[in-house]
Design a protein around this nucleic acid. Structure first.
Lengths: 205, 205
DNA sequence: TAGATTGTTAATCGATTAACAATC
DNA sequence: TAGATTGTTAATCGATTAACAATC
């Protein structure tokens, strides 16, 4: 994972910067400085400037950064200056919440297909979505040219679902199943396992 | 954040190891080796051994690790060899999914109180939970001695909720709101913003 | 014993930070 | 101009990895 040039860890921080810029804009701010962002995010201003310097010069000495401009640049870098179609596999409680999560649409990620393999659910509606048969994953994904998928199935079936998705052409997977997936090089995976996050905190309690 | 001794980044990997051990046990395995774990998790065997060496010697030369024993040790280290009560703030779609997420209970994290400030929801049932008034957060948290909270409210109210929680004695927050929280030293925060994870992948597409 | 794998050391690699010249 | 803040360099810090003696 990760192209040769910019470290993954830097890429990983850009969405956080982007989120902070959105926040500042909503507050009515037009200009910010690395120090202001640093204070808000709890990281050093030097790191923010260094991270940004991988991609260009976006600020002005003595002044700081024009928020709207920097945001636009970050959006281009992250390729979120466009709309992305997303496939969702798993129509349980979690899938339901994901399908109806407003922040996805607000940020240009649109769930356009929901799959489940439970015969009782296939064909039924979940909110505004018609639940599709998991069997149709390959054809639907290929026909619609979807590149991003979200896995919200039990751990037992997650690897198999991932295999099917990758085979169908998916290149980025957001995995909610509590299991490390095995995928070929070039396929991105990000993990969301809330239990892991809780366990990272109990150590300190 | 982070005590002096063991690096945060090491603590962060322990839950992943623990998850893998559970998986191996379910597969019926009794013994494993750092190399086997490494292959499964996509990290180096040296790193796994080094991480574990911060806490003791859990393996046997020539053989590897007794899975059940290593799991027990990790559970003790992470303090997940016990049950934890959790408060949930926000009874929307997301809160609903969180409250009913089976993996929490299965891993010793028990949602014992659900709060919302919407008068239409207060007093109503959400699954097996009676929704409590956010106003009662301080008293309920203190009376029940809850240390861990999950925030599932809109970004606009998340900081205010966090302040209330911290004031009430919460020491670990799992934050689903897309905003970086400001909390005093000693209070743990972990973030789950699915949009951030998606944006970390689009860069590579 | 021979083979395998740990725990640990030392080397390497990479990330963060401090500091400051450049400049708005 | 004086003050502020960037972009960047070099130094520091920390994490990862390679290698191997110890030993099961």
């Amino acid at each position: 994972m990760g192209s040769a040039d910019v470290p993954d860890i830097v890429i990983g921080r850009l969405p956080i910067y982007l989120r902070a810029l959105n926040f500042l804009l909503e507050e009515g701010k037009e200009i910010t400085a690395s120090q202001e962002l640093a204070d808000k995010l709890g990281i050093s201003s030097a790191q923010i400037r260094k991270d940004l310097s991988h991609f260009g010069e976006f600020g002005k000495q003595g002044t700081g950064y024009e928020i709207r401009y920097l945001r636009e640049q970050l959006r281009k870098i992250l390729k979120v200056d466009r709309e992305w179609d997303v496939a969702l596999v798993g129509a349980g409680d979690l899938g339901h919440a994901i399908a109806h999560y407003g922040n996805f649409d607000r940020n240009g990620f649109h769930v356009v297909a929901v799959f489940d393999h439970n015969p009782r659910k296939i064909g039924a509606k979940m909110g505004r979505f018609r639940i599709l048969d998991s069997e149709s994953i390959p054809t639907v994904i290929q026909d619609m040219g979807i590149q991003i998928a979200i896995i919200a199935v039990p751990a037992e079936s997650a690897q198999q679902v991932a295999d099917t998705l990758v085979e169908a052409g998916i290149r980025a997977i957001l995995n909610y199943a509590p299991i490390t997936l095995n995928v070929p090089p070039g396929v991105q995976v990000q993990y969301i396992d809330p239990v892991v996050y809780l366990q990272r905190m109990t150590y300190y309690l």
